[in-house]
């Protein structure tokens, strides 16, 4: 599904070159659940952003669903991204001005899905995550765990092939975190959803099928669980 070849990322400030990622090679197959770990500054988030096409590498080759991303134009890349990738963030990143219902609905608007169909899809999603009663609340009226549920529901509503999660449990207490992780595991097992998550927590990483350790921008180790 995904293949990174010799991916590097560095910034130049004057004569100073700051390297973030250095010669990363990574292949992820459909149905995998990969956890990326590493200390602060090791480049995990940058790697995830590159995979998610929110950021571009300085060097290297990036293939997604057999398409050479590094050669695509902005528009094509965006279309590919829109159809296939869902994002979940540590800080949830819900739109504060929108209700739960509207937040979940927003991606459908960008996919030009008709009103009736949108209603049905959002209703399904609310049902599935058991947040029907909260649909008219605004994010600020929800707990962190509930907000993250909405964030995940929003990421899943367009049925992406790949779910990217940047420390999804970072702002949650351990009980809420466990629930989210169980949910990810279930998604991966029962629906075959490909998931890549970045995490600090050893325990959360164990939910995945493969753990990759990054250090100073290079892959230090990779092991299957």
């Amino acid at each position: 599904m995904l293949s990174l070849k010799n991916i590097s990322k560095y910034y130049k400030a004057g004569n100073l070159k700051t390297s973030i990622l250095n010669n990363i090679n990574l292949d992820v197959d459909a149905g995998e659940f990969v956890s990326i770990m590493g200390p602060s500054g090791s480049g995990k988030s940058t790697l995830l952003n590159i995979i998610g096409m929110l950021d571009e590498p300085t060097d290297g080759y990036h293939y997604f669903l057999n398409q050479p991303i590094h050669q695509l134009k902005e528009k094509q890349r965006q279309a590919l991204y829109k159809e296939n990738i869902g994002f979940v963030f540590q800080a949830y990143h819900l739109i504060d001005e929108l209700t739960v219902y509207e937040n979940i609905e927003t991606p459908l608007l960008y996919h030009n899905i008709k009103s009736d169909e949108r209603k049905a899809l959002v209703a399904d999603m609310l049902d599935r995550f058991q947040i029907v009663g909260k649909k008219d609340l605004f994010p600020s009226q929800l707990s962190g765990g509930q907000q993250q549920l909405v964030g995940i529901a929003r990421a899943l509503i367009v049925s992406p092939k790949l779910l990217l999660a940047d420390e999804p449990t970072g702002n949650l207490n351990s009980k809420q975190g466990d629930e989210i992780m169980e949910l990810f595991k279930k998604l991966n097992k029962e629906e075959g959803m490909t998931i890549i998550q970045v995490t600090h927590s050893e325990k959360n990483a164990e939910y995945g099928s493969r753990i990759i350790n990054l250090l100073d921008g290079t892959v230090e180790s990779s092991k299957n669980v």
Binding site: G52, L54, K82, L94, I95, D96, Y110, V158
Partner: peptide
């Protein structure tokens, strides 16, 4: 800016 960022991530052109 945050809202704009989110919208972009959600697929807005």
């Amino acid at each position: 800016s945050k809202e704009v960022g989110i919208r972009k991530v959600l697929g807005s052109s």
